[in-house]
Design a protein around this nucleic acid. Structure first.
Lengths: 345, 345
DNA sequence: TTGTACGCGTTATCAA
DNA sequence: TTGATAACGCGTACAA
């Protein structure tokens, strides 16, 4: 069943049928009625492959998600979906491994599926520098600023990672901690990890705490990687009294590792996370964390992308405010803790 | 950039390029190498719209996810994605609200995008009965058996929900509990919820425990709904000593509610979940739960769907084995607990 | 082993 | 207001 069949059966030409189906002007009411009648009778739908082939695009927006274990990404993804559903765009999700090249993947998607725009959920600046030039459609990068990259078709929406991390360290220091471990992403590769680390260093400098790389362990953002990163940290620096984890899932993995060593959170080690996933406040202790505003990030991203697709406005780089959430997983350092003296033996 | 460009640049004809790109025989090694060289240099990808137009196939495989808060779904989804990525199918995810009609949504998707097959992650039998007849492509329903529905193009992959729930109750009873609450899905609407409830009733009957609806509270599968369901349960039946939650996220929400009432898990109230999400064993106490084998469910679903798309074999209804995971969130009932007598006052 | 040429179903252009 | 026709990029008989 094609447009030609409809044409024959309705007594009109294929072009007129096409015009009717696309709601174009210059069609008589009579033609419209007759044709729609035949269309409905045959339960006909246009072949979207042919349509897209002709129109050099699809009606879809592709989303490339880097690292699928990150619960913040899940919630942003869900929000994006519901926002885009209203616009009538199809929604093509592609997960890539945290160590994969998301821009090459996007290039493949562009070649194959011809989306009208792409949203990157996480991304590595190196990959963008290397290959983003080959992408022609409007894109938005989330959780990592693309300002310095300077591509005309790449916007970004981020949290102020450096400042947020600084707040986290401030909080720990204000509780009396100076021996602070950092569980992070890969600073050399991940922009947000680098920014968050920079914020930590800035805070350390203000308090004259040596920014000692032996207290930093890099890991992917997942429960299991958080767990093993914390194990390594405890091996390297058993003297730490507090940990800043660069994602909530990392923090949750870390808390399990701390407990499996027979230590308590927050009595022996305070933990601060980053992201502010819903789950955090269901845990005991409630996770102290930096709350990124996932809803606003999703909303602004969609707005920027749709504007760009419509050709309105150039690339923009927005920073969404965060909030520091004080839970129960970080508490004042007790200098005379019996456990501390034990461990000093 | 089309195969004609590649043909010109490599000195071969378009047909040969096409043959190389599709791994067909009757191409010289030399041609293969030269052509692939040009392809890689130009980062060329075939236009899937044109390919599919020609091959009379369509856009890919659609996935309709019912209720996005369910972490088991997230992990199955991720697994599906990576399995389907290898097959070269595009992957179209659509989330619908837990109260929406997923079959109507699928009908819309069929008309617009012409997927070759659909995977339903969760689904309501009523909706299938009402409208599934309009769907022509092969489908697989996950986590809910479609056997009784009897559609020729609808397979299903499930866990034995009734038996699994029975095991959970068995475990609680073996720990001495008889006053057991149930936090469930909507038994009238959700097939798995109904099956799990049936398993509970069956176990109750074996132990001559009255299957009392006052100890059952229905809720969606999410943290916040688990929380409020548990609150209602505690209001209605403050005498319960154990709870079986029909999903892990529900259980996690419930645990928070229990603690916010000043009670302890598992000392005052034992909790068993359902699903076996990775997170469960990172919590304290580790969640006792029924582990559904998400990986196997995803793998079998893809296999059944691809077979059906190839026209091999009729609808199948598979049951994937589960495992009961004994964590720390359910413990033996202490009859002489001081708290119990307190509450008996 | 390779190339030419046609058709897949649609939309856009132009002429009627 | 309509219809004939030429693309869109690919796969594949068929011919070479």
């Amino acid at each position: 069943m094609t447009i030609k069949d409809i044409a024959r059966e309705s007594g009109y030409g294929a072009a007129t049928v096409s015009r009717v189906l696309n709601g174009q002007p210059n069609v008589s009411e009579e033609a419209k009625n007759k044709i729609m009648d035949v269309v409905r009778r045959n339960n006909f739908h246009v072949n979207s492959n042919a349509r897209r082939l002709k129109q050099h695009s699809s009606t879809g927006i592709a989303v490339v998600v880097k690292g699928s274990k990150n619960m913040l990404f899940s919630s942003i993804l869900e929000r994006l979906q519901s926002l885009l559903a209203k616009t009538g765009y199809a929604f093509l999700i592609n997960y890539v491994d945290e160590s994969a090249d998301e821009v090459l993947e996007a290039l493949r998607i562009c070649g194959e599926l011809r989306p009208e725009g792409i949203i990157f959920l996480g991304g590595d600046h190196e990959n963008f520098k290397r290959s983003f030039g080959g992408i022609g459609v409007p894109c938005v990068l989330l959780t990592s600023s693309a300002k310095e990259l300077g591509f005309p078709n790449l916007s970004s929406v981020t949290t102020d990672d450096a400042f947020a991390a600084e707040c986290a360290i401030d909080h720990l220091v204000s509780l009396g901690h100076r021996n602070i471990g950092i569980l992070g992403g890969y600073v050399e590769k991940s922009y947000p990890a680098a920014r968050r680390y920079m914020g930590c260093v800035r805070a350390f400098e203000r308090y004259s705490i040596p920014a000692d790389r032996s207290r930093v362990v890099a890991s992917k953002f997942s429960l299991t990687d958080g767990y093993s990163a914390m194990e390594r940290l405890l091996d390297k620096r058993p003297d730490i009294t507090a940990v800043f984890a660069m994602s909530d899932v990392t923090a949750i993995g870390a808390i399990r590792a701390i407990r499996d060593r027979g230590l308590r959170v927050p009595e022996d080690i305070s933990v601060i996370g980053f992201d502010g996933i819903e789950l955090g406040s269901y845990l005991t202790p409630k996770l102290t964390t930096v709350r990124q505003d996932g809803e606003a990030i999703a909303a602004r991203s969609v707005s920027l992308l749709l504007d760009a697709i419509r050709g309105e406005g150039g690339p923009a780089h927005e920073v969404i405010p965060f909030r520091f959430f004080v839970g129960e997983s970080a508490k004042p350092l007790e200098l005379e803790s019996p456990l501390l003296s034990e461990r000093a033996d």
